[in-house]
Computed example of a mutant assay.
Amino acid sequence: MVSRPHGGRLVDRVAKDKARDRLVREVMEMPRIGVDSIMASDIANIAHGVYSPLEGFLTREDYLNVLAEGRLSDDVPWTIPIILDVAKEEIAGLREGDEVGLWVSGQPIAVLDIEEIYGWSRDEFAQQVFGTRDAGHPGVRLIAKRKDVLLGGKVLLLNDLPEPFTDVRLWPRETRVLFREKGWRTIAAFQTRNVPHLGHEYVQKAALTFVDGLFVNPLVGWKKVGDYRDEVIVAAYRVLIEHYYPRDSVVLSVLRTRMWYAGPREAIHHAIMRKNFGATHFIVGRDHAGVGDYYGPYDAWKIFEEYPDLGITPLFIREAFYCKKCGGMVNEKICPHSPENWIRISGTKIREAIRQGQRPPDTMMRPEVADVILRHPNPFIEVEELG
């Protein structure tokens, strides 16, 4: 059956009806803290239960426990600290117990009940979460730009963010209802920050063989330079599902959050979020959430051994490639032929072909998917932004 929410309860911190009307008026008189689009997405994910059991930004005890143990202070698995950073001058005069309005792009988004104000070490965060302090790591660069003080406390969402992908944007309460309506008892979730190639399709369909339905949940939000733009990823998945997947076997919905590129720790984080959407299984790829050579290709598989209480079943499916003798996509476990017959899928080669205005080989990517990408005037992120 659909999985239980992480921590046992699906969080709902969305202000409703009269309470919302009152807070919308009161927030105009509260002290204001501006947040960027990355933080605004975290607020929405807290409020709508994507980050269950979190009801707000981590207080000090939970923050330190997540860094040191990969768990909240009550021992619930949690590997990426969800924090709200502010500059000292932004909180001058504020005390623990105060309420503040959180604003993005000139509009109030939420109210924060400040439970704790505390300092943090960006170097410690980087070392514990990413396993490195090297500024060549995109997650380390992102954290280095964050501010000096952290605020912990519960949030109450007043307004949802504008959503460009309204027809493929579902919250956990909605996916759980949808999965039940479809009669799916087992659901495999797939995390991606890329457009789909044949290797992704192979992995997804291999998982679909063993479960009732597939939940394709591409990440839209902050990513590094060279990654695909959100609208390109969504368009590519739309056409792939339309042409190559059985009707009613797949649900496509975007997840608005940042990429951390934290390798093993982020694999657990990705699994927890999909558990909250109702998935019972989670596909863990080779070098999941990795970047460069900071992590071993199967480190993200090994970390799941530390979390037998995670409550979602990892699916470890080997990397796929095209075998000329087999005449299709296979992996090393099922292909008897020698490597000279293999055509490995290279994301770098796919990007090079696209940058030159050419279709990647049909042994790497579906032509319909390639054509969707090629129609976009600039499919890649060119400038690294904070939020």
Rank of each mutant, 00 (worst) to 15 (best):
M1S: 15
R4P: 01
L10D: 01
D12Q: 11
K16P: 04
R22S: 14
E26R: 04
M30D: 08
S37A: 11
Y51D: 06
T59F: 08
R60H: 14
Y63P: 03
L67V: 07
G70K: 00
L84E: 05
V86M: 11
A87T: 08
A92Y: 14
G97A: 12
G101P: 02
S105C: 09
Q107T: 14
I117R: 03
R122V: 10
F125D: 03
A135E: 15
A135L: 15
I143A: 09
L150W: 10
N159F: 15
L161K: 07
K182Y: 06
I187F: 02
A188M: 10
N194C: 05
H200D: 00
F210D: 12
N217E: 04
V220C: 06
V220T: 08
G226I: 04
Y237W: 15
H243F: 08
Y244G: 04
D248M: 06
V250A: 11
R256G: 05
I283A: 03
A289V: 01
G290W: 00
W301K: 10
I303E: 04
L310C: 03
T313Q: 12
L315F: 09
I317F: 02
A320K: 06
Y322W: 15
V330D: 06
N331Y: 09
I334Y: 05
I334C: 08
I350R: 00
R355D: 09
I381H: 08
